[in-house]
Design a binder for these strands. Structure first.
Lengths: 344, 344
DNA sequence: TCAGAGCGCTAAATCGATTAAGCAGACTAT
DNA sequence: ATAGTCTGCTTAATCGATTTAGCGCTCTGA
């Protein structure tokens, strides 16, 4: 059950393995192999269905044509979609993808990095967890091709591709204020991670620009590590504790989903009792009645840029840094459709 | 920037590479290497942060410790979740996962298989597309470890892990009839694929068992290749063409989502105008108001069994065939909650 | 005293490709 | 005639691990 090797072809063609290798690597001209021999080899290769052993090749060349994709959670809508495009795009360049989820846990992330190193991946796409600075620094120092995804580490200049979190959150707050809502709250995670900070900053900046009050107590932070039940009850008691609440912005996809669940359990109607807006789009938001207004990320563009930047690193060694920030889109649906004139 | 190799350790320890290899592979005892030497080598290995080159190892042993995961669509909720568990479980056995989506397209599937063969994956997890029989047969003939996922090919006895489609659909129909609905329709894809056939069969069987009428015109088939817009308009015109319709069963996750969209566009209320039930659970179904009743697949169990069966193949060579069919769960929510007594 | 076993380790082949170096033979130029 | 060049290919080293066969030594028992 052995595969066909370059030696088998060589033997049958009556030439040396070297010649076969040259021909199959398209170096026939360069290495001055005759047409005759070239053709014979090519014919034999396709007749025998020769498939180069990537292990042997990789061992020799030091390239595996494999990239490592580290995401927060491959089962999450955003990352699953990114993973899909990444795989498709990588394939066009002859690369395959190994993946893994960190759950935003640095220990898991370290484990993944280790394994990917064992596997000699050629490049890394990484959604960094909190506290991952040292590891990223190490990769950078080792000059490994790498792109950060969805977030970046402000202390370390690296390639990254992400959405414009500030602008996305700004637009959301801007929209809520323009719709005439007062007493607007934000639900987020107490993370030092830059993407969360930027969402908070963008939101705050918009409120300030409108001179709309946004006291600290209107920001609710739910620990990432909270269980679903804990998160739900935190959200519910936050809502109950703020009876004047007119609108809530949830700073992530999954918090938004928890928010909907909380509303459901409290018997509140989205858009009617309290306006509702979330970061990140989702089937759920699109199809819910009322449709949930959200700040959508350009998932395809993100994935495509990630691969482009990585391939650029992989090809060239000139180390310009690519930092791509793509615009977020405010998708207006019915969950916060009140307009100023309707205000009492 | 070269990594540390076994030779480096050997040199520093003053022994041969062979000895190092024995020790690091836990064969110290078996190969009668002294405690002293063993310890020295182990200490050096961890001091130098030795990481075995998997390529070299793979080349020699013929094992890559990599498995190929071929799904229909990694961005789909079901497959994304399977992919997550598969990765976690595989990791426990020291395996990494390469993935790819077929879009249910045989050409794409062939491409994926080719690439995975190049990459010398040790085993395959495959969601077969229609017409993939020859390829699966070939893998089987080559005695490659393999498990089919989500569906199987009736003509070819292989390992597989899937949900009990017949029972799931049967329960759904049974439930609808017991709730008192008449004029029940089924929306599916016109696929010869076994999982779809079994869902249709299960549904039909339940209707028959209740002596409930289920004429052919109550089955609507939407081509898998249809665009979203096409699918939507097909579903809408089907609904409009059947004004007596009381309940619809959608045989897949994504058809259910299209169905919800169609309802929304037609201004129909799920559960009130027409009862609604879908195969496969989804955040959307859980959180929608009303909650969407569905036939849930035991995703975790499926993924875990897949890995177990594959690892079993990978370990042993005794070729018993493992065919695992896991029960589906009817998750009752409000989208078809009418009970018999309420019927006019 | 000497064959045979046990001990602790090593030499060298091997996996399948890539690639630097180089070797004959034909031809060219002086 | 002789050095130099070009042609068309081959030899052999190499990547980093695994693994078979076996080496040199000591010890034991008859």
């Amino acid at each position: 059950m052995k595969g066909i090797s370059i030696k088998d072809i060589a033997k049958q063609a009556g030439v040396s393995p070297t010649t076969v290798s040259f021909v199959l690597n398209g170096k026939a001209k360069e290495k001055r192999i005759s047409e005759q021999v070239s053709k014979k080899i090519l014919k034999l290769a396709s007749k025998l269905k020769y498939k180069p052993n990537q292990l042997a090749r990789g061992l020799r060349t030091g390239k595996t044509k494999t990239i490592g994709l580290i995401v927060e959670d491959i089962a999450n809508h955003f990352f699953a979609n990114v993973a899909k495009i990444v795989e498709e795009e990588a394939d066009k360049y002859g690369y395959k993808v190994l993946y893994g989820s960190t759950e935003d846990n640095i220990t898991k992330a370290r484990g993944l990095l280790d394994v990917l190193e064992y596997r000699q991946v050629d490049g890394y796409i990484i959604t960094p967890t909190p506290g991952m600075d040292k590891e990223i620094e190490a990769l950078k120092h080792a000059r490994k091709p790498m792109v950060l995804l969805d977030r970046y580490l402000p202390q370390i200049p690296t390639n990254y591709v992400m959405v414009n979190n500030f602008q996305g959150a700004y637009d959301a707050a801007d929209y809520l204020v323009k719709c005439g809502y007062k007493n607007i709250a934000l639900v987020t995670i107490p993370s030092e991670q830059i993407q969360m900070k930027e969402r908070l900053d963008g939101f705050t900046a918009a409120m300030k620009a409108h001179q709309a009050p946004f006291p600290r107590k209107m920001t609710k932070k739910i620990p990432f590590a909270a269980t679903k039940d804990e998160a739900l009850s935190e959200i519910k008691s936050f809502i109950l504790g703020n009876p004047d609440l007119e609108a809530i912005f949830f700073s992530t996809n999954y918090l938004g989903i928890y928010g909907m669940e909380a509303f459901k359990e409290l018997g509140l109607t989205i858009g009617k009792d309290i306006a509702f807006i979330s970061f990140d789009d989702h089937d759920l938001f699109r199809l819910y009645s009322p449709g949930i207004t959200c700040v959508a990320q350009p998932i395809h563009d993100i994935a495509r840029h990630v691969i482009q930047v990585l391939m650029n690193e992989l090809d060239n060694n000139h180390n310009e840094i690519n930092q791509v920030i793509l615009p977020a889109t405010l998708v207006k649906r019915e969950s916060c459709s009140r307009v100023k004139s309707q205000k009492a």
